[in-house]
Computed example of a mutant assay.
Amino acid sequence: MSTQPAPREPQESDFSLAQLRGDSARMAPHWVVPAADAPAPVSPAGIHGVVVPPSSARLIDATSEYGT
């Protein structure tokens, strides 16, 4: 009878961030992302029927200092 513990599978917490980043970098070339078509611009006259609740409008209006 052996007194050695059975080998265990590595747990997620056994891997470091550096290992995860390395694995991701090696896998990245295998992932092909198709080019996305840019949506066509819509004129403001074409947007109708949008209803914004007053509370949402006030919220957006109050965030003007965070804008560009």
Rank of each mutant, 00 (worst) to 15 (best):
A35H: 03
G22D: 09
R26I: 03
A38R: 10
A35V: 11
L20V: 10
I60G: 06
S43W: 11
P10Q: 08
Q19Y: 01
R26W: 04
S24Y: 07
S24N: 04
A25W: 01
P54Y: 15
L20F: 10
A35E: 09
Q19T: 06
R26V: 05
S55M: 09
F15H: 00
P41M: 02
R58C: 00
T63K: 14
G49H: 07
S55R: 14
G49V: 01
A25Y: 00
T63H: 13
L59K: 08
V50Y: 08
G22L: 05
G46W: 03
P34W: 03
P34A: 13
D23A: 14
S24P: 01
Q19S: 00
H30E: 08
M27F: 14
P44Y: 00
F15S: 01
L17S: 11
A57M: 11
A35G: 05
P44Q: 03
P10M: 07
D23F: 10
W31Y: 14
D14H: 07
V32P: 00
V32G: 04
W31E: 04
D61Y: 09
Q11P: 01
D37T: 12
V32D: 05
M27H: 07
D37Y: 07
Q19K: 00
V50M: 10
S16I: 03
G46V: 08
L20C: 06
P39I: 03
A38P: 03
D37R: 09
A36H: 13
H48D: 15
S56A: 04
S16Y: 06
